[in-house]
């Protein structure tokens, strides 16, 4: 499924805007190669993807797809059974201590001592980090509207997540790893979190990796998107490329209306539709084999979702079905659904 996308894109142009062609592990914030892990009822298989420095990657999958397991392996909180993990160009086990100093992590449900205040937490966490920026921490609390002297138990869920984020950011980590930071939060708080992530990568050396099942959050700000389903990586690429390749395509069945209208019998029209349907089904088995992840024929219309859209596919389809197909953009949600349903169907 390599990028055969976009009408006017020449190869050079693509290289150009994607940045310097080949990345060495040194300018990768995160690199996983062939990572495996098996549990009695679940396994991660050959998880491979990488995130260049200075960018945001969204890690999308349904619940139970392996997002948290992958993050735990990166963080060395769970042991992989195979493969390599490099964080900031360093092996995640050999250089664990250095890595932990240089990255920030916020887990799914941050635990706090309920009786203590945000200010106390700042002091507590700062002892572990030589690069802790006290002024930045206070300013972030301020920006988030968190009272530094309120007890944590009196903060709302959204405030607790924002406190977690302020604590994860104040040593100025080069890579921020977030596990479902926005799930269960209202849209206003989610927007605050996303704004904060965008301001982190204003420094082009800093990167963000975050998992979520809420695709709208990633839709806007992520540079790269990785889809995981049942422990396998389904897609991992520049978000714009993924959205350029995945399209919803529909077209009217190639029924010869002249003939159908020629006789008054409804049977004739039905026969024409059946003939056209059979023709389209045949195309799906031959000329268009493997093009659609899922499709349906309803009434006189075919619609399907593809991950290999290109203008040459569009032209080829126009020739095969006798009219220009209607091509519509899909969003990451549509892709997630197609990935999950498509695989289930197999």
């Amino acid at each position: 499924m390599k990028g055969s996308n976009a009408r006017s894109d020449t190869k050079t142009e693509r290289r150009n805007w994607k940045g310097s062609g080949d990345y060495t592990s040194d300018n990768l914030a995160l690199a996983l190669r062939g990572v495996c892990k098996s549990y009695p009822k679940f396994e991660l298989k050959d998880v491979t993807f990488s995130l260049p420095r200075g960018y945001i990657m969204g890690f999308i999958g349904p619940n139970g797809a392996g997002k948290t397991t992958t993050i735990k392996i990166i963080m060395n909180m769970a042991r992989k059974s195979g493969g390599t993990v490099e964080v900031l160009g360093l092996d995640h086990r050999i250089h664990e201590e250095e890595i932990k100093r240089r990255i920030g992590y916020l887990g799914e449900e941050p635990c706090f001592y309920e009786e203590m205040t945000p200010l106390w937490f700042g002091g507590f966490v700062s002892k572990y980090y030589p690069t802790w920026d006290k002024a930045y921490f206070r300013a972030t609390l301020d920006r988030f509207g968190i009272d530094p002297l309120k007890r944590v138990k009196d903060l709302s869920k959204g405030m607790k997540v924002k406190l977690g984020l302020a604590l994860a950011l104040s040593h100025k980590p080069e890579l921020l790893i977030l596990d479902e930071p926005t799930s269960g939060l209202d849209p206003v708080v989610r927007r605050d979190v996303l704004d904060e992530l965008m301001s982190v990568i204003q420094d082009e050396k800093r990167s963000v990796f975050f998992s979520t099942h809420i695709t709208q959050d990633i839709e806007r700000i992520a540079d790269y998107v990785t889809f995981i389903h049942e422990g396998r990586i389904v897609e991992s690429d520049v978000k714009d490329d993924i959205l350029g390749r995945w399209k919803s395509i529909s077209f009217p069945l190639p029924v010869r209306m002249g003939e159908a209208q020629g006789s008054f019998g409804a049977g004739n029209l039905e026969a024409q539709v059946a003939k056209a349907t059979a023709y389209v089904e045949k195309l799906l088995d031959h000329e268009l084999k493997g093009v659609f992840m899922g499709h349906k024929i309803e009434g006189l219309t075919f619609s399907g979702i593809t991950s290999v859209f290109s203008s040459s596919l569009e032209d080829k389809m126009a020739q095969l079905v006798g009219s220009m197909p209607r091509v519509a953009p899909v969003n990451l949600d549509d892709i997630l659904v197609a990935v999950v349903r498509g695989n289930d169907a197999c």
């Binding site: 142009e13 150009n16 805007w17 994607k18 940045g19 200075g54 960018y55 945001i56 996303l194 704004d195 965008m198 301001s199 990568i201 204003q202 082009e204 806007r220 700000i221 992520a222 540079d223 790269y224 520049v238 978000k239 714009d240």
Partner: peptide
């Protein structure tokens, strides 16, 4: 590129590509 991405709440790669297109 990064300021524009933040302001328009879009990805850096998207704005980078837009600028290189305008340059071309």
């Amino acid at each position: 590129i990064r300021q524009l991405a933040e302001e328009a709440m879009t990805s850096v790669i998207t704005t980078k590509r837009a600028y290189s297109e305008l340059e071309n």
